[in-house]
């Protein structure tokens, strides 16, 4: 059974996600447009595609920070712990949000309302297939679970409150906070998916896949540096390795 507190927390999370999504919707429309130039090797078009993707990523980071700040318990953490958690979870939450927008019929990710990107589009934006393929495999796997808004929101909350992230000081508080979301998710699934007992462990294993994806992403960031593709300041701040 879900306690009244758990029920209201889940409602709050789903509403917070929708609110953050709404807020960034207008921003998404303002990013550098995806060029319709047919020639994939056109240098300017390639730069525009890279800018398009990085600007969407920046909006996504802002959305994740806004959402985290509305997570019960998050603002109880010190600012340093908030940064330590967000620095590592951001890419994983971004990949969860990407998977949420995966359309299996066209094997594409729909970031903007009417703009979908397949694997080749990701490559045209400057990403390497060593990163693109795992993204699409993960998205396909997540899509098969058919998670609803509440399950995504809880999974994201569990992902953010991971006490084993580098530089986290108050690990026990993070762990206690994570536990409230794990318990809520477990009860929620028992009620909503009564005849699929494996769904809970299956969802937790997605968090493990995200760790692998995160290290593949670090290789992608390193490869971009080798190609002199500069990340914008916010992305560089959280993903680049600063000597």
């Amino acid at each position: 059974k879900l306690t009244p507190e758990q029920l209201s927390m889940i409602k709050k999370l789903v509403a917070a996600q929708q609110q953050c999504n709404q807020r960034s919707f207008t921003d998404r429309l303002k990013v550098t447009p995806w060029p319709q130039v047919p020639d994939p090797n056109n240098r300017e078009a390639r730069q525009q595609r890279f800018a398009h993707f990085t600007e969407l990523a920046i909006i996504s980071v802002q959305e994740i920070v806004d959402f985290a700040k509305q997570l019960p318990g998050f603002l109880e953490l010190t600012r340093e712990d908030q940064i330590a958690l967000l620095k590592t979870s951001t890419i994983e939450v971004m990949l969860l949000e990407t998977s949420r927008r995966y359309n299996p019929e066209i094997e594409s990710i729909t970031f903007l309302k009417d703009l979908s990107y397949n694997r080749d589009d990701f490559a045209k934006a400057g990403l390497q297939f060593e990163f693109i393929n795992p993204i699409f495999e993960f998205s396909k796997g997540m899509n098969e679970l058919q998670l609803n808004d509440a399950e995504y929101a809880l999974l994201i909350a569990i992902n953010i409150f991971s006490a084993d992230r580098p530089n986290v000081q108050d690990q026990s508080l993070v762990e206690r906070l994570q536990h409230t979301y794990v318990e809520a998710l477990h009860s929620y699934i028992c009620i909503n998916r009564p005849n699929d007992r494996l769904m809970f462990p299956r969802m937790l294993m997605k968090l493990v896949s995200l760790r692998t994806l995160s290290s593949v992403h670090s290789e992608q960031v390193f490869a971009l540096r080798l190609q002199d593709k500069k990340l914008p300041p916010l992305l560089s701040e959280i993903w680049d390795v600063h000597e």
Partner: peptide, 16 residues
């Protein structure tokens, strides 16, 4: 932890 000025800004933003 490095200073993460931009992330700090996003975290501070609404609370002011």
């Amino acid at each position: 932890v490095k200073d993460h000025q931009l992330l700090r800004y996003l975290l501070d933003k609404d609370e002011k």
